[in-house]
Design a protein around this nucleic acid. Sequence first.
DNA 1: CGATAACATGTTATCGATAACATTACCCAA
DNA 2: TTGGGTAATGTTATCGATAACATGTTATCG
Lengths: 347, 347
Amino acid sequence: MIPSERRKRITIKDVAQAAGVSTQTVSRVMNKFSYVSEETRQRVEAVVEQLNYRPSTLARSLSQQRSYTLGVVTFGLKYIGPSRTLNGIADKADELGYMLLMKELDNFDINSIDGVIDSLLARQVDGILWVAPEIGENHNWLDERLGKIPVPVLFLAMEPRNGISSVATDNYQGGVLAVQHLLDCGRKNIGHISGPLTWWEADERKRGWRETLLKMGMDASDQHCTEGNWSSASGDQAFIQLLEAFPQMDAVFVANDQMALGVLREAHRRNIPIPEQLAVIGFDNIPESAYFYPALTTISQDLQMLGEQAVQSIVEMIQARQGNQSVIAQSRFIQPTLIVRESTKRV
Amino acid sequence: MIPSERRKRITIKDVAQAAGVSTQTVSRVMNKFSYVSEETRQRVEAVVEQLNYRPSTLARSLSQQRSYTLGVVTFGLKYIGPSRTLNGIADKADELGYMLLMKELDNFDINSIDGVIDSLLARQVDGILWVAPEIGENHNWLDERLGKIPVPVLFLAMEPRNGISSVATDNYQGGVLAVQHLLDCGRKNIGHISGPLTWWEADERKRGWRETLLKMGMDASDQHCTEGNWSSASGDQAFIQLLEAFPQMDAVFVANDQMALGVLREAHRRNIPIPEQLAVIGFDNIPESAYFYPALTTISQDLQMLGEQAVQSIVEMIQARQGNQSVIAQSRFIQPTLIVRESTKRV
DNA sequence: CGATAACATGTTATCGATAACATTACCCAA
DNA sequence: TTGGGTAATGTTATCGATAACATGTTATCG
């Protein structure tokens, strides 16, 4: 049964009238603070209860110039990474009393970026979270436009820049952890299958690989690294190439778990025993990776936490600005951790 | 460099003043429609351009009682399913000019449901999409409360009910497809690992399995089915139990790809050759499943499309209500498809 | 050629709240 | 006893837009 007539909204006026007070008094009751006599408070509260009055956040946002809403700009939502981050964002936002206004980006064209930001600002968001990977020069717009955005903006998974706030997993450190673990296992010839190197995160992981090897006086030339595109199919292909270029390889650090899955499959096909002949380590710790065959050793990044941190930070920025304090831009890193399973083993 | 002074917003008044017209005229220019002389239009547009004026959607929402925003209630965002659906929702919403106000549910307590709905309504959403699975009686609240919600509500992945609009994958049909495929492969003893049977979707998949077998005069007793919890770990366990109860099993329909992964792993451990001795078919078609070893045959559900359909439908409902037409509740099904890979094969 | 419609623009009220200021009563210390 | 602070409440302006109505000017038509 569909209610055919639109019930009209119960407003603060209705409550005021029914309680025989001014709207201002009702507002005072609703928002605690400030002086209201106990008797009046109770009377108003009774009426609120009875009429089932719910204040319009929308109207409040307009009059206070503040919406308690965060704009969230995402890219690649259909992949698991962004959505785990989003989950952390949603949880923390809820906890702190904010709602999320979402916008999915489908490209990094400067016009569409402007459009997205404008549409968020038109709805008075109090701050913006940029949950899109840094790829090539796609963050260049910020030099020019960021200063013109009248609310705080915080970037996730972006290379730290002066004067801009960001939160990211320490991908470099993740690469270091991975390679160190392989070295600890006694491996001598460590290859790498990277993500697309235009991605900052992929580049950082590779840097962790390279610098750790160099520090040990080992070889980390580009022959020992192939580039994939994060997909399992590309991991498969990259692995085939890498085997040709680097036949003596006895361990491989793969930049994400999906690609590592491709590697495992190809290794099965070629009867390369893992971990005996080849150790494999991934990155991300997707839930399935514990059930790969063999179970995948990997670097875990806590994306949930990343999202939570991001919300925490931006809310602090919002409050600071509210209180007219100057906002100090910060870049924070979340440390990844090593998860040892069966695909790597001492020799 | 952080802009320390909050620039004040450029409003329609500023534009009106600068262009020497009334705010109403500016409004007319911004919204096309209605009469404005070409000359005035150009003058106003020039000023808009020059001041970089952007209307406040917030103010418009208040005055029009309409926000061009959809409330989206999600559950289990961190899993891949909901986020693929969300991606479809985001795309279509963008295309139709709507934004998304998100709220993640962390339980199905009636109070928290009320709270979520209230907070969406307080922000004047034009409609609500309920992207949370139907589990046990967790949708019971709707009998009592749904009628009181003054905007259209559309449910995803809910059992069709009279008078309530919903969009869902046809899980029953998916089960039918899976079992038929196994029969086509010449399998005779077909087991099932289900999701938690309190979930409507899990129950439907199981029903597809059972009824198809019964129709063929074959056995589909509860000994031939074990219940998992969607995780790979539970798939593993369920498979072990099922092997004991049903040793002659030569094929198994697993209710999602994650659990199927657990099955594959356990089969490896026990040296059960797949597909020769045991055919395995999953459900969902997650991107990794093509790279399982062996590649997994599965039932693909198009969650992106599900999301798009949902937005399309609710926008139609909103427009109908706007035009004071009565809204006819509909339940729609999206048909899943069979993806044949290596884990099933003729015998 | 006067009535009527189409065009162009302005004025005032409204959406639902809060901010800022005003008013009144009461109590207490100087 | 009088000025000043606290308490309780009301009044008016404001947030940034659109709706509804009003007004004046041109065309158009019978």
